[in-house]
Lab assay of single mutants.
Amino acid sequence: AQASVVANQLIPINTRLTLVMMRSEVVTPVGIPAEDIPALVSMQVNRAVPLGTTLMPDMVKGYA
Rank of each mutant, 00 (worst) to 15 (best):
A1W: 11
A1V: 13
Q2K: 13
A3Y: 11
S4D: 00
S4T: 04
V5E: 01
V5F: 02
V5N: 01
V6L: 06
V6S: 02
A7F: 02
A7G: 03
N8M: 08
Q9C: 04
L10S: 14
P12R: 07
I13A: 15
N14D: 13
T15Y: 08
R16Q: 15
R16F: 10
L17A: 00
L17K: 00
L17E: 01
T18G: 05
T18S: 12
L19R: 10
L19N: 07
L19W: 10
L19C: 03
V20Y: 08
M21S: 05
M22T: 02
M22I: 08
M22S: 01
S24K: 12
E25Y: 06
E25G: 11
V26T: 08
V27W: 03
P29T: 05
P29Q: 05
P29E: 07
P29M: 04
P29R: 05
G31V: 02
G31N: 01
I32M: 03
P33N: 07
A34F: 06
A34W: 06
E35H: 11
E35A: 14
E35V: 14
D36Y: 12
D36C: 05
D36V: 09
I37A: 07
P38V: 08
A39I: 14
A39H: 12
L40E: 01
V41I: 11
V41C: 04
S42Q: 13
S42G: 11
M43D: 04
Q44M: 14
Q44A: 06
V45T: 09
V45S: 05
R47P: 02
R47F: 08
A48Y: 15
V49K: 00
V49M: 06
P50C: 04
P50M: 14
P50F: 07
L51P: 11
L51F: 13
G52F: 04
G52P: 00
T53E: 13
T54A: 05
L55Q: 01
M56A: 07
P57Q: 08
D58L: 10
D58E: 13
D58W: 12
M59L: 05
M59F: 12
M59A: 09
G62F: 10
G62L: 08
A64L: 15
A64F: 06
A64Y: 04
